[in-house]
Nucleic acid binder design. Structure first.
Lengths: 143, 143
DNA sequence: GCTTGCCTTAAAGTGTGCTTTAAGCCTTAA
DNA sequence: TTAAGGCTTAAAGCACACTTTAAGGCAAGC
């Protein structure tokens, strides 16, 4: 069972052009062609593209994906290197989780401040932008 | 107490050029200057830049930051719009958290497979790249 | 036979966010 | 007084990942 690029595109929700681009970048080695030169995708290819999409969405670079492909093509002897790459990427994922948690805190804090301003418990936006505006007409301390 | 761009840069761990770029983009209104035209940053500016950096690191676009600045400059009447923006961004953060969790699952799964291959419990990398290579020399089913 | 539509390729273009370069001014130390 | 080093600006350049364009081939339906 093979798929045309259109079928692959539909199943993956990924533009055909992007899939071709990935192949050109070397992320999809050994894609076969029919007698007209049209690509034929196997289920495994779709699985791999889906995995790449998942990694890409979380910041893995194409160059790193390519490294992994190249290592895989060199056989099982490169598994330690591939593990090292994935473990590093995992660290990166943890870093991003922290960043997200921090941003979420900051957003909630800001939203709480807006609530307080709306309820009149805080005098306008005392900490950030509005104060800049206020200062605009005040004397400077330095210089 | 004001800071030069160099001091701001050091405190924020952010290149001076980037800070200037943010000002040019309108993200830092009302930065004052000394008599030589050099920028003078207040603590509030540093706080705001730090917050922007936090939002930027988690995917908020500069155009959206600028929208928020512009709304803030228009006064408290725009707080509902700013809340709407932040709530939307919050959704985005949740989406990203899910993506990270999925990627983390996928990585762990891949690492587990590598372990099994290393221990000989799985015949090479049966699911992805190596199989592509295998297929390379087999007849096609379609066409 | 001709149009429609999907396929192919290579190459150029786009969006985003910096980052670097270039040219010049001011201050300070030698 | 002159050279170094930090500031200024505007503009060009870069990295990344697509995305779009252009030019053309093949096949099925009218």
């Amino acid at each position: 069972m093979s798929f045309t690029i259109k079928e692959a595109s539909e199943r993956l929700g990924c533009p055909a052009h992007t899939i071709r681009f990935y192949e050109k970048e070397g992320l999809l080695p050994y894609i076969k062609r029919d007698r007209h030169g049209n690509r034929l995708f196997e289920q495994d290819h779709l699985d791999w593209i889906r995995l790449m999409t998942c990694f890409r969405a979380t910041g893995m670079k194409i160059s790193l994906l390519k490294q992994m492909v190249n290592l895989a093509l060199d056989g099982d002897a490169t598994i330690p290197q591939r593990k090292a790459i994935l473990n590093q990427y995992k660290e990166e994922l943890f870093r991003r989780q922290n960043e997200l948690a921090e941003a979420l805190d900051a957003v909630n804090n800001k939203l709480a401040i807006y609530e307080e301003i709306e309820e009149g418990r805080l005098p306008s936006e005392s900490r950030l932008l509005n104060q800049m505006e206020d200062r605009h007409n005040q004397p400077t301390k330095r210089e």
